[in-house]
Design a protein around this nucleic acid. Structure first.
Lengths: 341, 341
DNA sequence: TTGAAAGCGGTACCAC
DNA sequence: GTGGTACCGCTTTCAA
């Protein structure tokens, strides 16, 4: 059933039917009711391909993920973000087009999405401090919002959480608990958020006159194997840390395993801090399913980013929107006072 | 630059240019060369929206993921599968449309994808034994392939790995090593693959005259917290297992942590078996990045499923394709002989 | 081998 | 309020 047939069956023009369906005000109420009823009865769904061509809009947004940061995809933060964004896309009638491309093909992928018009905008994730994607997308005039920040702060839309503050506060917290040797298992420090996290960590230490020990700082792709290997090495070293700051849930898993293998107990002999979502993973007495709607700030961030992006798409005139969200790395049952104190 | 302009600039008709670009044989070679050169020079990309309307094909496939099995998304198996599929989609010029919908909205999502024609086919993941999606998709005539099996074995296309055999062999292996108390930390047993895995496990035990101990068997959403909690409980029990069969990497992480916390060493006092990909996660001396192309059977499965789906879309006449892949759960450094032997 | 023209299924402008 | 109609940009007969 297409518009033409529907219109014919109602003895109305396509125009009127289209207007009725799309909520234009100039349609008589009774007409609208008839149309709506007939559409529902016939189970009419406008053909999205035709609509896209006619309106010149793809009603879709793209997420480009490179194979190399596919490790990202297994990060709950990633999927949680996707869930939040996906929810908004669905609500607003947008499709989410996911491109998984080999590293290096990224630019081609964006250019292609742009030139063949299959999306109206894109979401940029895991930005590096000076991410070339920003300039590229600006050049090709594709609306985008970045989840995270770059050094080019003011020319585009982004949403980020306060990484520096969060890690500074987390470090402060551990310092308050008496810890002095605090390990930072960071993400890859070529990523913007990782740099900020390190900065926060370092600042907290220095504010107390503690010189950061390079041996306690590591940055790598956020995997369980990395968390395990580093934690293991540190714990086996001559002067092991009493606390860990983990950059992600997988890393925290690895730390948990390493700590366990040393016969130590998390929360007693060794502290582990990371954010809410992660702690809920590590606790074995959780009261509900993972990632409930109200619990995850990341999911909310995904939703908000999606809203921002759709806003940009619909009002091309608008300037960039920028939001910085406070996020506390809270303490859970896996954290306790320093055993040395 | 659109087709019309390109044609005009070449003083050719749209028809000829279109044919040249799309490789139709009746175009004179020299003409084709001219067209191709001009297209490249002008950086011409056909408008996908127009093409989709004209051809009646969406050139896209859908993956519908419910929010409730979003836990799935953080499973490396899931993202690895997506990577494999995405690669093929990209190569074949298909978009991957990812719908993340609340549980219960699934049917509506499929119906909508079908009726508004935004995808040509869909991939079905994590099927339950008698999954209603099969009948639904058949009813609405949407091409699909299932990754995994259902009880309706022969009416549709699917690709699965030999779960029963794999877990039977893994169990056999542990039995050969002298283990007698082997715990199975399965996925949710409402999922088809989990049932098969349990069957394989049970069969191996019974073949040796060992009655499966219900206390050693658990099934739940495959998370680290679940793996940890169950392993912890089992190890703290009166008659702890000497080996674990883990259903997924996250579960294995949890087992690893629990084993560690008990002061036991994986591979010595306690064995842990799961498949290749998972073991490579747990080993801290990995020789390369995760998910290299040649290493992951899941990624290959994703690619193959995508090929099958595109095949179905392009040749609607063809009957169902079904493939069962042998997969061995191999032993890694985390497995060793039973300490009791 | 090439071109003219009729769709594909909507949207939106302009009359009435 | 409603209808006629010209697009949107490409594919695909059908004729030349």
């Amino acid at each position: 059933m297409n518009l033409k047939e529907l219109a014919a069956s109602l003895k109305l023009s396509q125009t009127t039917v289209s207007r009725a369906l799309n909520g234009y005000p100039e349609v008589r109420e009774e007409t609208r009711r008839r149309v709506l009823a007939a559409a529902k009865a016939a189970n009419y769904q406008p053909n999205s391909r035709a609509r896209r061509l006619a309106t010149g809009r793809a009603m879709a947004v793209g997420h480009v993920v490179t194979l190399s940061d596919q490790g990202q995809m297994i990060n709950p933060v990633f999927s949680d973000f996707m869930a939040g964004a996906g929810e908004v896309y669905a609500r607003e009638g947008y499709d989410l087009v996911l491109s998984i491309v080999p590293a290096g093909e990224e630019e081609r992928a964006y250019r292609q999405l742009a030139s063949n018009g299959s999306v109206d905008g894109v979401m940029v994730q895991s930005p590096r401090p000076d991410d070339p994607r920003i300039a590229l997308l600006q050049e090709i005039g594709m609306p985008f919002v970045v989840h995270g920040r770059t050094t080019a702060r003011d020319s585009h839309s982004w949403l980020d959480i306060a990484n520096t503050t969060a890690f500074r506060r987390a470090t402060d917290l551990l310092l308050d608990l008496g810890h002095r040797r605090i390990a930072l298992l960071n993400g890859e420090e070529k990523l913007d958020f990782a740099r900020r996290r390190r900065n926060g960590y370092v600042a907290a230490l220095e504010a107390r006159g503690i010189a950061p020990d390079p041996a306690l700082i590591a940055g790598a792709e956020m995997t369980e194997a990395y968390g395990y290997a580093r934690a293991r090495a540190l714990l086996d070293g001559r002067s092991p840390p009493t606390a860990f700051l983990a950059s992600s849930v997988l890393v925290a898993f690895g730390v948990g395993r390493a700590v366990g293998e040393r016969g130590l107990a998390l929360g007693r002999e060794v502290s582990l801090v990371t954010h809410d979502d992660v702690l809920s993973y590590l606790s074995n007495d959780r009261d509900g399913p993972h990632f409930t709607a109200t619990r995850s700030p990341i999911r909310a961030a995904g939703a908000r980013c999606a809203e921002m992006l759709i806003g940009l798409i619909c009002n091309p005139g608008t300037g960039p929107v920028q939001e910085l969200w406070p996020v506390d790395l809270t303490v859970g049952r896996t954290t306790g006072p320093c055993p040395d104190t």
